[in-house]
Design a protein around this nucleic acid. Sequence first.
RNA 1: GCAGGGGUGGCGGAGUCUGGUCAAUCGCGCAAGGCUUAGGACCUUGUGCCUUAGGGCUGCGUGAGUUCGAAUCUCACCCCCUGCACCA
Length: 938
Amino acid sequence: MIDYGAIEKKWQKRWEESNAYEPEPNEKKPLLVTAAWPYVNMPLHIGHLKTYAITDMYARYMRLAGYNTLFPMGFHYTGTPIIAIAKRIAERNKDVLDEIKVYNIPDSELPKLSDPLYMADYFAKDTVRGLRAAGLGIDWRRSFNSINPFFSKMVEWQFSKLVAMNLLEQGEHYVAWCTNEGNPVGQHDTKGDVHPEIEKVAMVAFKVKDESASFLCTTYRPETIYGVSNLFIAKGAAYSLVSISGKDYYISKSAAKELAYQLKMEEKGDVSSDELLAKSALNPLTGEEIPILPGFFVDESFGTGIVMSVPAHAPFDYVALKRLEREGYKVPSSYKKVISLEGDAEQSIPSMVYLSMFGAGESASDDLIEEATKKLYSAESHNGKMSVGKYAGSTESEAREYIKRDLLADGNALESYIISNSPVFCRCGTRAIIKIVNDQWFINYGDKAWKEKVKALFASTEVYPKKMRAAYDYTIDWLDLRALERAQGLGTRFPLNPKHIIESLSDSTLYMAFYTISHIIASNNISADKAKPEFFDYVFLGIGTVDSASAASGIDPLVVKRCRESFAYWYSNTSRHSASELIYSHLTMYLFAHAAIMPKELFPKRIVTNGMQLYEGKKMSKSLGNIVPIADAIKKYGADNLRAIEIAGTELDTDTDFSVAAVSGLMQRNDFLYNTIKSMEEMDSGGLRPIDYWLYSKLNAKISSVTKDMGLLYVKSAFGSIYYDSINEIKRYLERGSPNQIVLSEFLSKVTIMLSPFMPHIAEEFWEMLGNDGFAIEQAWPQPDIGMINGPIESCEDVIDATLSDIKGIITVMSPKNGGSMPSEVAIIIADEWKFKAYNYLVDSKKHSEVIAKSESFGATKEDVSKYILQYKNPNSVTMKVSFTSEELRSAMEDASKYMSSKLGCAVKVYSESSSSSARAQRAQPEKPGIELKWGQS
RNA sequence: GCAGGGGUGGCGGAGUCUGGUCAAUCGCGCAAGGCUUAGGACCUUGUGCCUUAGGGCUGCGUGAGUUCGAAUCUCACCCCCUGCACCA
């Protein structure tokens, strides 16, 4: 049994003692691999480990492949969640305390975590411990966080560059807003972590009859305006008369309050709902006069608190009218249908049809009506056609845009934003609304020239998995204005508005460059006030000289020089790693930042993304309570086993499942390898047999295919070949008896090197047990000896396998007829060479007649050849030549006969067809030797 | 809706680019036997259907097409997953 804990500690210590992961520039080719830095509002769990483990595997592989490889890691502090969590720890919020419980934080630490910075530092340290324990080869000297003052200066420098390039813009922007706290509201600021979904909607104005003012109705479906039978308001609610851009409108009082955050508006006075009910309105498109009625479902706080009633298409409107009718109200009697669905009856009222589909009558619950509304809305949006009005005949979705455009152009409508999943509450308890901010700064990712530059440079960036390239291309096109500042949170102050901080994604697009100098800055204790633009200009862009940069910054010229050299060396070859979800945000912004600021030869060379890590088939989440901290998993399963599953459980593009069953499979196999290596002392090393050549062939073919797979980051396939296949091959090799120590040792040593990126600790242990010097992780990746790849001998081995399984099958069938006894002897009859030649000729010619005509050249009679070759009825299906000769197969079979004999429990004799007197001899085919079982006396 | 990815055995997941060596690598699960005081582990065998001297049939979301031959190529349709921004 392997003691994983002991092995892990042993090798981690030795690696550390030899500074194995603290590279500096040298004569080798450089490679800087970086993974998206973790956001430390919680400790890491095994779901987070995946990307880092893959990055580490890649770094280790490239190191073996001859690169001087650097893998640094920092921590992301920017934004509000760290503050939010710390605050809730201070409040002793039960959810957060429960969530944090799985990480075994000592009671003495817990109170201190209510300080956001202390908490972030604490979780960062915890993360370092976890990643070290997982055996990641990270250069921790270079670690920094996103609020490091020197780094902040770099971010400021970065944004000053963008300003100079005219890539920032100021303008209007909408945000979800808490009126109580005076802050924007993001998902983590809301009760229940609900994301406020923001939508742009139309507000249609219905002029009041005999008045200059209009009713303003929020609607998703302006195209249904032709079918409006009345307006609904909330009875008993307070309404206001307001003036927007010189026009008067009635809206609910609460809407007036909220819309004031979006539109310039003046409140002119209160109006009661009864007053409104007494009025009537004019349809802006049809001019029809319509009544105002109380709607039971109208929410004064949603939209404008006035709803246009389209009973034919809106189930709520329909039900409301029916209820009013029953209560004795005078209600419109015609439900005008304006949209038709294919196949519906002309007279049918869609809202009635859908209500009855759900078994919902006039007294149905709101939920049921809601359900019918959704279905009808979806059906009409997808397949509905306008049946009336200017756009009759066009699809509903087209008509919606056209009609909205017309209404806006004619001054019959306004636009506003609403929270479509309203109500969303801020944690303080206030309902969130939408605010339009008009001095908001944006990064203009919509800039055409910038986009073109990114596209041009990105064309030569390698993307893994390859098929993700389309997603980047799409995102490059799609990215547009992006707000870059926020009112709250940790981070770097935005130079153009120091009250705000630079938003968390925007401050993390160039930080990987800082790793190349962070340890130099730290070890020389250089303070942030020396981080002058001239310093960054020189180090990152080569603008100016060592002396000018030193003079401007006050930093020692030798330090400046070292920074410049370090950056120029490492940044010339970079590989970026993250989960694939970041393609749509961070990774593409990272491309934009590099295109704008960095010299084009330093543009990212490679981006690698991966899927998620699942746990027992499910996404890990606090609500499922299935979060496994990294330290726990390592203790339980072993770092290498955890790594292997996370890295190579699937290929990069799919999610990986972590299951305990998979771990136990790995443990058993590790034990097998361990025991095999231990038992090697007793092995001899004599002359080579076919099976030895077979193992060499497998080894070299493996090196060749794995090298190819690793180059394309087909991780699962590579690992399968290195690990599972090798184990199966060793088992087979050992079964054949008399294993050769030299052969097996070479096989295992090379496999161990290839295994080390995945399972570094175990690989080191095996490497040492095999009697090799140095670290496995510092060896050269094996080169395949193509000459040792022996197709014929592998094919012969396959034939041996197939023959064995054929024989077993026949024995199973025949035994009962022979009183349950086993055969006393099995004769294996190898086809004569002429059959090989005839067969191969058929593959080429595809014509029986041509093969038969050539009979003599194969050394056989026409009769024999035609009898043999005609059994391949469709020559087109004979496509693969036999790669070995009759004699090669005979000798391999001979060598395997002892093994077959032990498997079958009876004597096995090998004959050639011509020397066999068996009646079954002529059945022998090149890849299917004849078989004869003998019962009784042998 | 827009964009990207995907539908293969009880399950995870190969194979698809480059059609034939594919009843389908590998792994998990399951079943029987061996070993064991017992359990676990380990080893052997089996695991679509029908056969029974190494054979045949059906099958890779649905339907059609190309081809001597299709999981693989073409067309149409159905279904699922992810992202859609100020959120790290």
